[in-house]
C-alpha cells in the first residue's frame, strides 16, 4: 500500500507489453527472431522497411498468429485469452478489407454488438468513434464506395470504438492526405495524453518521430535499436561503417589512417593482404584514403563497405528529411 505512483521503470507487467524472447517462423521463413521488448504507456513507433517484421510483431501481440518460441504478455494478459484481452486492446491492421456489403456505421456497430454491448450503447459508441475520425456525413454510405483514406479512417474508428487502453496501429497514416494525416496524428497524441499505449508502425522514422515517445527500429526480424527518438537517431548516425581494403602494405596503411579522428578501429585481415576499418564518417574516410594513396604510393586493390545492406537500411530509416535536422 504505497502512496507513491510507481516510477516508470518500475511498472509491473499489468501496465506493460512484454515480448519475452519471442521468435516467429512461417515454416522456413523468418518473421521475427529473439525479440525481447518491453513497451510502456505512451506512443511507441515500430519502424522498419518492408518485410522487416512489423506486422508480425503486431499479429503476435493480438494472437492472430502464435509465437514459435517465447511469450507475449499484454497488460498481464496473454493473447490466448481474447475475452479478456480485447476489452482492453484495439488493433487497426494493415489490410484494407471489410466484411461485404456494410455501411461505415454498420461496420463499426456490428462488431460492438459482438463485444456484447446493448443496442443503445453500441449505437452511442459507434457515433462517438465515427465523430472522432470525422466521417459522420459518410457514415450511412457503403464502405465499398469510400476512398482509401476514408476506409483507413473507418477502420480506425472500428478499432477505437470500445475505448481500449492499448491501441495497435499498423501503418495507420498510409493513404491519408496531409490534412487527414495531421488530424489523425493529433488524435493519436490526444489518446496518448489520455494514458493509452499506442503502438504505431511506419516505414519511415521521420513520419512518426515528432509524435513518438519511443521508437523501435526493426530490420530482417531483428531489433536494431530502441529508445527515445533522439537517442536512436544519434545511434544510427554514429553507427560505424565497416570498410574492407585490400592493399599491398596493410600494416603501414593501418598506422597512417588510425591517426585520423574518423577511424574508430583498424584491424588486419587474417591473410595479411588487407584490413578492416570502422569509421563513423565514410565520406571523410574516403578523402583520407585518397591522400594516403597519393602520399605513400601504396597499391590499393579494392575498397568495399562490408555491411552495405545494413547501411542502406539505416540511411533509409533516417530518411532524407530526418537526417538534415541537426
Amino acid at each position: 500500500m504505497t502512496q507513491q505512483a510507481p516510477a516508470p521503470e518500475r511498472l509491473g507487467p499489468e501496465h506493460l507489453i512484454i515480448f519475452d524472447n519471442v521468435s516467429k517462423f512461417y515454416g522456413e521463413i523468418l518473421g521475427v527472431n529473439r525479440i525481447n521488448l518491453t513497451i510502456e504507456p505512451g506512443i511507441t513507433s515500430l519502424v522498419g522497411p518492408n518485410g522487416s517484421g512489423k506486422t508480425t510483431l503486431m499479429n503476435l501481440m493480438t494472437g492472430l498468429i502464435q509465437p514459435t518460441r517465447g511469450r507475449v504478455s499484454i497488460l498481464g494478459i496473454t493473447p490466448g485469452d481474447p475475452q479478456a484481452l480485447f476489452r482492453r486492446l484495439g488493433y487497426c491492421g494493415q489490410f484494407d478489407s471489410f466484411p461485404k456489403g456494410m455501411t461505415g456505421y454498420e461496420f463499426v456497430n456490428a462488431f460492438l454488438g459482438v463485444h456484447g454491448y446493448s443496442r443503445k450503447e453500441a449505437d452511442e459508441r459507434t457515433w462517438r468513434a465515427i465523430e472522432r475520425v470525422d466521417l459522420v456525413e459518410a457514415a450511412h454510405r457503403k464502405v465499398a464506395g469510400y476512398s482509401k483514406g476514408m476506409r483507413q479512417r473507418i477502420r480506425l474508428a472500428q478499432s477505437i470504438a470500445h475505448e481500449p487502453e492499448v491501441m495497435i496501429l499498423d501503418e495507420p497514416l498510409n493513404g491519408l492526405d496531409p490534412m487527414a494525416r495531421a488530424e489523425t496524428m493529433r488524435l493519436f497524441r490526444q489518446l496518448a495524453k489520455e494514458g493509452l499505449h499506442l503502438i504505431i508502425s511506419s516505414h519511415i522514422l521521420h513520419e512518426v518521430d515528432m509524435m513518438s515517445d519511443r521508437v523501435v527500429l526493426i530490420n530482417n526480424g531483428y531489433i536494431l535499436a530502441e529508445g527515445g527518438v533522439q537517442g536512436v537517431r544519434d545511434e544510427m548516425e554514429e553507427h560505424p561503417m565497416q570498410i574492407m581494403i585490400r592493399c599491398d602494405r596493410p600494416q603501414e596503411f593501418a598506422a597512417r589512417v588510425f591517426a585520423s579522428d574518423n577511424v574508430v578501429e583498424a584491424q588486419l585481415h587474417a591473410d595479411k593482404q588487407g584490413l578492416f576499418v570502422k569509421t563513423r564518417n565514410a565520406e571523410a574516410f574516403y578523402l583520407l584514403l585518397n591522400r594516403v594513396v597519393i602520399e605513400s604510393g601504396m597499391n590499393i586493390e579494392t575498397v568495399a563497405p562490408v555491411d552495405d545492406d545494413l547501411n542502406a537500411v539505416y540511411h533509409y530509416l533516417i530518411g532524407s528529411n530526418g537526417g538534415g535536422q541537426a
Binding site: P82, Q83, F86, Y91, F98, P99, K100, F111, G116, Q158
Partner: peptide
C-alpha cells in the same frame, strides 16, 4: 468466405471466445 475476403480477423479481434 471470410478468409478469402480477408475479413475474418475482425471477429478474432473481438473479446469473443473463438
Amino acid at each position: 468466405g471470410e478468409l478469402v475476403d480477408k475479413s475474418l480477423h475482425y471477429y478474432f479481434l473481438c473479446p469473443l471466445r473463438r
